Simulated assay, not measured.
Amino acid sequence: MSHSHNLPAAVRFTSNGLIIDGGTVLLSTEGTDLVRCVVVALPLGITRLGRQGPGGCLPDPRS
């Protein structure tokens, strides 16, 4: 399995739980074209799982 991301070295949160740093993590496995993505969105830290596509991290139609 391989991965890449654009998260900072430390993901920071405010005292009331909002996230200051966010980004996207890409996960893939050899032998398949499927690339999963996990997005941590500002400011609430909402996490979304999807598939990486030409427009970025897209919702998975099977979820």
Rank of each mutant, 00 (worst) to 15 (best):
V38S: 08
M1K: 04
I19H: 12
T32L: 03
T14D: 05
I19L: 12
S15N: 11
I20L: 15
L42W: 10
I46D: 14
L44V: 09
S4E: 05
A10I: 11
R51N: 11
I46P: 10
M1R: 03
G50N: 11
S4P: 04
R36P: 07
S4T: 11
P54R: 15
R12N: 11
I46F: 15
M1F: 04
L26R: 00
G23F: 02
E30K: 05
A41R: 12
G22Q: 07
T29W: 04
S15M: 06
L44D: 12
N6L: 03
G23Y: 01
V35F: 07
P8A: 06
D21M: 05
N16V: 06
T32I: 06
T14W: 02
Q52K: 05
I20D: 11
L7M: 02
S4C: 08
A41C: 12
L49N: 13
R51A: 09
T29R: 07
G50T: 06
F13P: 05
L27Y: 05
T24M: 01
R36C: 04
T14S: 06
R36D: 07
G23M: 00
G45T: 05
N6T: 00
R12V: 00
P54E: 15
I46S: 15
L26T: 00
Q52W: 15
T47K: 14
E30H: 10
G53T: 09
T29D: 05
G50Y: 03
I46T: 15
D21L: 05
G17M: 05
F13Q: 14
G17I: 01
V35I: 12
P43H: 12
V25D: 04
G50E: 05
G31Q: 00
T14L: 00
V25E: 06
L26P: 00
H3L: 10
T14N: 07
I20Q: 15
A9P: 06
M1L: 04
P43V: 13
P54C: 12
D21Y: 11
G45C: 04
L34V: 14
G50S: 07
I19E: 11
N16A: 03
R51D: 08
R51T: 13
T29V: 03
R51W: 15
S4G: 08
L7S: 03
P54K: 14
A9S: 14
I20N: 13
R48F: 04
G22T: 07
T32C: 06
G23H: 01
P43Y: 15
T32W: 00
P8L: 01
V35N: 00
L42I: 12
V35T: 07
P43R: 14
A41V: 09
S15I: 04
V25Y: 01
I46Q: 15
I20Y: 08
C37Q: 03
S4D: 05
L18M: 15
G22W: 09
Q52L: 11
S15G: 07
L27V: 01
L49W: 10
R48M: 09
H3Q: 09
H5Y: 07
N6A: 02
V11W: 09
L26F: 02
L34F: 11
G31F: 06
P43N: 13
T29A: 02
L18R: 13
V39T: 12
L42N: 10
H5W: 08
L7Q: 03
L42K: 13
V11C: 13
S28D: 02
S15V: 07
L26I: 02
G53A: 08
N16C: 05
G17P: 04
V25Q: 05
A10M: 11
H3P: 00
S4L: 12
H5I: 09
P8V: 00
L34N: 08
I20C: 13
L44F: 12
